[in-house]
Design a binder for these strands. Structure first.
Length: 113
DNA sequence: CAATTGACTAGTT
DNA sequence: AAACTAGCCAATT
């Protein structure tokens, strides 16, 4: 079959980036966390927001709660859901006066690839 | 193809 | 210390 429309090919980088992010996130051990910027850095990019976008869209199949923001805050809008996972995995948390109610102790459980 | 957006980050005000 | 701004990158419209 011919080519699907000359340039109608499926751009690989699209899936490649998503896959790469999912692989890195899936590689984070339980009880530890990495920041969005760290995940991006492991991929050779600095797109912390791009990582967050992948999580929002395809993070449902990976331990998304192990990816946190710099400063130790859980993913925006998922603080309550993520907190149960941290407690279940023994991730060191710290009380906070924020709406999140807690903060992840990055100094104690930050993971490096 | 330009503009908008988004589970971000660091620096300023 | 909280709010604002600018910078970054990839996907979506």
């Amino acid at each position: 079959m011919s080519q699907q429309h000359a340039a109608g090919r499926r751009p690989q980088p699209a899936e490649g980036f998503v896959e790469a992010v999912l692989v890195v996130v899936a590689d984070i051990p339980a009880g530890q966390v990495a920041t969005y910027g760290d995940v991006a850095a492991l991929l050779g990019s600095r797109g912390a927001r791009a990582v967050g976008r992948v999580m929002a869209r395809a993070g449902g199949d990976v331990p998304w709660w192990r990816v946190v923001r710099a400063g130790g805050r859980p993913p925006a809008g998922h603080a309550e859901r993520a907190r149960r996972h941290y407690v279940a995995e023994g991730t060191p948390l710290r009380p906070s006066a924020d709406d999140d109610g807690y903060r992840i102790d990055l100094a104690a459980c930050r993971w490096r690839g």
